[in-house]
Computed example of a mutant assay.
Amino acid sequence: MVRMVSATELKPTTYAWPVETTELRVKAGRHLAVNGLDLQLGTGVHGLLGPNGAGKTTLMRALSTVHRPSGGQLRLLGEDATSSRVLRPLRRRLGYLPQHFGFYPRFTVREYVEYMAWLREMPKAAIPGAVQRAVERVGLTARADSRLKALSGGMLRRVGIAQAIVNDPDLLLLDEPTVGLDPEQRVEFRTLLRELGTDSCVVVSTHLVEDVVAACTDVVLVDEGKLVWQGLPAALIQIGEQGGTGDSPAERGYTSLLSSHRSAS
């Protein structure tokens, strides 16, 4: 059955920011992992940085509508993402790769990406072509009919990226997407990110500062669930050239900003 496209999906874009949060609070269990976050993200690739326990994964789960905020405002693609009324049509426009994603080992690569396209309620006739494009973009064309249980960790990560982009999402969320990728694959992935960010809002959570500097148009640094700093990769490098701990100017900028934030808290 072909899904009919609603008038809501066809209406022109009128929102200023694909992602906008105001005093956002999100709990991870009983812990307030995101605590009063104000953030605005536009079209482009945004690198989300922060130490372990900073609230990055919880924030990504909130942006993907998996976690419901416990307070504040969250608007995604112009919609109030705290309203259950808009969640179903909103999720059709999202792409999400969790830090740990589940899969059926006996599925082939193609079957798994097709299944995820079906879950996002893509029109049936559009799915085969969309799946083929997604698989090609992550460099798995030759393994499209291999079972997932036969793939390496890096290949599985690329399958996860393929399912996240199969519906050409307006908002793409990738949590630690380069885990398990070799250096050559990481370079290819950075190219793909830059391509995706030309007309979509892409948020990439990672510990790899160099990936952010190489591929992102914007850097978002969080700690203890709060915004520490937001700016251009070039600005992060410039801060690092003045001091800090790390093997590169970007890493020194990262550590310097965290240190300054903690000293002021």
Rank of each mutant, 00 (worst) to 15 (best):
G72S: 09
T245V: 15
E20I: 03
V187A: 11
R25F: 05
I239P: 10
A142F: 00
D182V: 03
W118N: 02
R3G: 14
T198Q: 15
A54N: 04
G253Y: 11
P128K: 01
K149H: 14
V109Y: 07
P69G: 14
P51W: 00
E188G: 00
V131W: 04
T206S: 13
K27L: 15
L173S: 02
T178L: 04
A28R: 13
K27W: 13
T8I: 08
A130D: 11
A150M: 01
E23I: 01
R25S: 12
P69Y: 09
L97S: 00
T191N: 14
L37M: 13
L87S: 10
E79W: 04
A215R: 07
A164K: 04
E184K: 13
G53F: 13
G95K: 01
E79S: 14
C216N: 06
L94E: 01
R106I: 09
A7W: 03
P249W: 13
T141A: 14
I127E: 00
V86S: 10
S256R: 10
V109W: 02
V222M: 13
L10K: 08
A16I: 01
L97R: 02
W229T: 06
L77Y: 01
P51Y: 00
P177Q: 03
V135A: 07
E241F: 09
A162R: 11
L172I: 12
P128M: 00
L24Q: 09
T178A: 08
T21H: 07
A144M: 15
E210H: 11
G180T: 13
D80E: 06
R147P: 00
V131T: 13
H31R: 03
M155L: 09
L148I: 13
Y96A: 01
D211I: 00
L48C: 12
F101A: 00
V220D: 06
N167S: 05
V212T: 04
H31V: 01
E9W: 01
P12W: 00
A150W: 00
I239V: 15
K124Y: 03
T43N: 02
T178I: 06
R186H: 08
E9Y: 00
R88M: 08
A214G: 05
R190L: 01
A235E: 15
G225H: 12
P18M: 10
L181R: 12
L39A: 05
L37P: 11
L208P: 01
E79T: 03
G153S: 08
Y15M: 04
Q132V: 09
V213D: 04
R91F: 03
V203K: 06
V228N: 04
P18I: 09
I237H: 09
